[in-house]
Design a protein around this nucleic acid. Sequence first.
DNA 1: GTGAAAGCGCTAACAC
DNA 2: GTGTTAGCGCTTTCAC
Lengths: 348, 348
Amino acid sequence: MPRVKLADVARAAKVHPGTASRALSPGQSGQVSPQTVARVVRAAERLGYVPNAQARALRTARSHLVGIVVPDITNPLFPPIVRGAEHVLTAAGYTVLLTDTDNDRERERRQIESLRGRGVDGFIIATAQWEDPLLTDLASAGVPVVLANRSTSCSRWPYVGGDEQAGVRLAVQYLVGLGHRAIVHLAGPQNVSTGRDRVRAFRAAAKEFGLTTADARVTVCQAYSEAQGKAAMRRALRAPRARVTGVVAGNDLIALGALDALAEAGLDCPGDVSVVGFNDMPFVDRIQPALTTVRLPLERMGGLAADLLITELESEGTQDAPTRALLGVDLVVRGSTAPPPRQRARRR
Amino acid sequence: MPRVKLADVARAAKVHPGTASRALSPGQSGQVSPQTVARVVRAAERLGYVPNAQARALRTARSHLVGIVVPDITNPLFPPIVRGAEHVLTAAGYTVLLTDTDNDRERERRQIESLRGRGVDGFIIATAQWEDPLLTDLASAGVPVVLANRSTSCSRWPYVGGDEQAGVRLAVQYLVGLGHRAIVHLAGPQNVSTGRDRVRAFRAAAKEFGLTTADARVTVCQAYSEAQGKAAMRRALRAPRARVTGVVAGNDLIALGALDALAEAGLDCPGDVSVVGFNDMPFVDRIQPALTTVRLPLERMGGLAADLLITELESEGTQDAPTRALLGVDLVVRGSTAPPPRQRARRR
DNA sequence: GTGAAAGCGCTAACAC
DNA sequence: GTGTTAGCGCTTTCAC
């Protein structure tokens, strides 16, 4: 059963296909007499006409397709971003091509190329690395890109993320307020902006609240994972003259790993060591102990990234400096944070 | 900067565009002399040629686009399914159009229509309702569809899901083995197959293991949500002559809600009441108490759904009875299940 | 206000 | 083995 096409509608309405096209096109229906528009619209509805987007895209060189690139859709950070973006995009007549790079750069390169072949109008990219040749390639090909959640060393792309600096400051401030002095930051990977930004913010906050560099240490994880978090926490506890009563984790997964390492070392959270996470993943309010964490407005982040991309796509080349939006964050206080134990050496 | 097209490659290789097309098409490059193929391929690589998928789709009436429809991508059930499907599809040269219906049927209808306009070759649908006019419409339009996770009353579509019957049986068997006799099933919504199948399986298992109908009660939730689970658990506890030591929840979210209601009623899990969930969502191993639950191979489910769809798309109309695959499930025993307390009336 | 005609980039049926 | 040609369904100049 062949799909009904514009020519069928035109025939039914007894007009030329060109006229039918104009009648159905919101921008151009003014050029057609109201009666004709009505006749065409009625015919289209009666026949169940759905325009062929491929043909339209081929003709207009605008596909109304947007690629969304995430490292791993099963990481709970990304579904809300995708959802927020998808809702805004579909409302504006765009369709989402989703791709999950599996944290594999070569795969990512191929996927982006494939989506380019699909004629996407632009990308929302949540996989940006601090130095990212894939993005540079896209830029030199003139493809519109908006970065979500992760930024790059170069600020040539519009970007929507959380206010990392404020989030980390909130966490450190809260721990210091509880009386903690010895705080370690289990940093995320340093090849992505969130990992780097949070380290920088941690050092700044430590300074602001009067912690010495011996008090405010940093241990870097190679990935945002429970395993890496556990290993990092172990290292922090084993370090010479280690003294840790507070932990600011690079994200919630690292925090979960840290909790494992603490339990393994016979330390109680929050009795001996307090832990703050980052992201407020689903269900971290239900783990034991309920995780104190920094909440990012992820769905809004995706939505705003979509808004920026649409703006860029629909403004004809009037390029100002790219927008960089840092969304406000909240510290959600739960059971994993408490005042530090009375001063006693915490050594292993 | 205009994209390089086939004509550019042909010119660079000094052949006709038609020949260039054949040379680059795996199926037809045999019709071209090896030297020519080499020349064309080299030119294509040198110029960075990426075929225009829109044009190809328009010409061949095959888009290599697949729509994946999920009710809510932030529900942790769906990302693994999407991921599994996406990996298989991209490996086979297909691209995924993802849409999140937000559990809104009207929105779903519009989205499916929109994706049809995009010329998708077929759909993987994870939103099927027990009676589903949207699917019937798709069928009468001759659009290939594979159902994932949820089936319908009518078995005309290929379907990949978990073995619900086995999963529920495992749960009931385990509880009975621990000594439980009074077991309530907090059933999922009855307009989706998983909700219905699990009720049926619960009744069958109860019978098999010698529970009376007074022992094995069912309370239906209107949605797979914590709120509904909590309300249902409350109802179960309040019921006249209520006696509950075991709970089989319709899924993990319902189980989480049930835990809330138990805590609220001053009952200990697993001391007073044991709870079994369904799905093994991420991090339910870390909640308090760690949830005993039935694990479904979700990523495999998505991958297999993709395989079935690809088979259907690439077999020319040789229609057998649609495949129905029920994937094996496991009971993951954790802390939320224990023997029942010594017999005493459990009344409120 | 409407009709005619060309063409987006590609593939496939047909020549030779 | 390769060139030629037509056309997928749509939009959009250009006439009138």
